[in-house]
Design a binder for these strands. Structure first.
Lengths: 126, 126
DNA sequence: CAGATATTCAACCGCATGGTTGAATTATTC
DNA sequence: GAATAATTCAACCATGCGGTTGAATATCTG
């Protein structure tokens, strides 16, 4: 179907909406990192970093493996793929390319006939 | 550089982190909508919808054109493309494929250290 | 002009967020 | 066993968010 599991997208996009967390992800792109390593570039407390990491973990964006007293984090690609896929749905808007489905929708729109979904024909045109 | 203009990504991803706003965007994908039309599917006040719309506008995700007393909103693809592009940096993690940028980074990496893959254990004792 | 329509503004509420600090937990090391 | 290291927990604080309601601002219409 067109729509993904939206509550997950909520937490994924929310996690991505913070520069610190995006930076952590980009750090994790080059390999496994411990909590302290992830926290190091920022001038925030370790507790604050821990919360960020938990947000990422909660969104499924990273996975944590505890070895001894150290927590190692690794990137988990699935949710990133989901977000990417959701955005791909709008790709036609910046590429200008239409696929079959979009062409259909667009045809209806230019014909100005009542759409299948919402027939708000009460509005005047200009 | 790998990173886009991060403050913009903050607001873009934040705007996308709400199901109501994502729904509005998907509505706008089939064409121009007024504020009331955008608000209609949800059981929230018009003022609340207005705030959502302002968040989308603020992130540059939509553009507003006022004709008479009615505000028409249209999708603005640029920021969506930015978000999509940012996520694309991580595409290799779920496709297993390397893009050009990654190949470059990786080439540098393999030149520096013998470890070919992403395990860069730097001087870690034990 | 009066009234209806479309939308925003302003004040408020409850709750989540991102930050802090200090104590607690768990694991390693001497 | 005691000290140190890695991380979380708990309490707290300021700020922002998503929601509400009621008034305000334009604009269209009769």
């Amino acid at each position: 179907m067109v729509e993904l599991f939206t509550p997950q997208l909520d937490t994924i996009f929310h996690a991505l909406g913070d520069a610190t967390r995006r930076h952590m992800l980009s750090d994790l792109a080059s390999g496994e990192r411990t909590v302290s390593q992830l926290a190091e570039p920022f001038s925030i407390s370790l507790a604050a970093a821990s919360k960020h990491i938990k947000a990422l973990e909660n969104a499924g964006l990273i996975r944590r493996e505890v070895r001894g007293r150290t927590h190692f984090c690794r990137l988990e690609p699935g949710p990133l793929a989901s977000a990417h896929e959701w955005l791909s749905h709008y790709q036609r808007f910046w590429t200008g390319r239409l696929d079959a489905l979009e062409e259909l929708l667009r045809r209806e729109d230019t014909l100005k006939s009542p759409s299948p979904n919402r027939d708000d024909t009460k509005g005047d045109d200009r």
